[in-house]
Design a protein around this nucleic acid. Sequence first.
DNA 1: TAAACATTTGAATAATTGTTCAAATATTCA
DNA 2: TGAATATTTGAACAATTATTCAAATGTTTA
Lengths: 114, 114
Amino acid sequence: MEHGGTHKEHGEMVERSSAGMPDERTLDDISDFFRMFSDSTRIKILWALEGGEMGVCCIADALGMTVSAVSHQLRKLRDARLIKSRKDGRNVFYSLDDDHVEGILDMAYEHIME
Amino acid sequence: MEHGGTHKEHGEMVERSSAGMPDERTLDDISDFFRMFSDSTRIKILWALEGGEMGVCCIADALGMTVSAVSHQLRKLRDARLIKSRKDGRNVFYSLDDDHVEGILDMAYEHIME
DNA sequence: TAAACATTTGAATAATTGTTCAAATATTCA
DNA sequence: TGAATATTTGAACAATTATTCAAATGTTTA
């Protein structure tokens, strides 16, 4: 099973397939992680945030959705630690908070487009 | 916006973030793709199949689940073209059918483990 | 052919989830 | 302070989904 030289910049090398099946807890964490990407609204939000941080209102405009609907999804993304928030006055600015998000979206895009 | 030299072996280079937001159809495809990874049963199946092809019964045993439940999920994974099937007598053997699956699982594992 | 085996399928059920709507909180400005 | 703006929150509703169970399909063996 080739692993194409996968390595990380910071931290230990992570060997996955050499070990057995992860425990139930880890498997749930992994599926929870992917569930964040299983909704097109959240994909749109993440995509938009690759251009830099944005306020809630601005995101809602860009997506053509209500502020409330967007806020609900922002909360889930933040709970999952994929985005972080910064408060400035009455505005809250959100931005990406995970190095893997770009790579994950890239890979999905490749899969879909090929 | 760093893209870390992402490139493909076969086919055109895929530039994602340089373009704008994909159309609704593509966004749905992407979220559908990730939805396949949002269930721990399916993650277990994919993980198991990295060791090579397996029959339905064998997968069910390995996962401690009913054959029916596993078969339902195998169908979804096959419809999503993440796995393929090979029939031999009364057995059906499944195996991975997407180069990106390993990379996707690796990235999730890194995210969870760090 | 009949029985045993491997897998698939469809309907039913319970659980999860995204959006809407209304109301609450928090901050700025006059 | 009071009005206006920005965001969050909770409840309700509709839609989706994973598993179970029973039955069907297809294949091998006696």
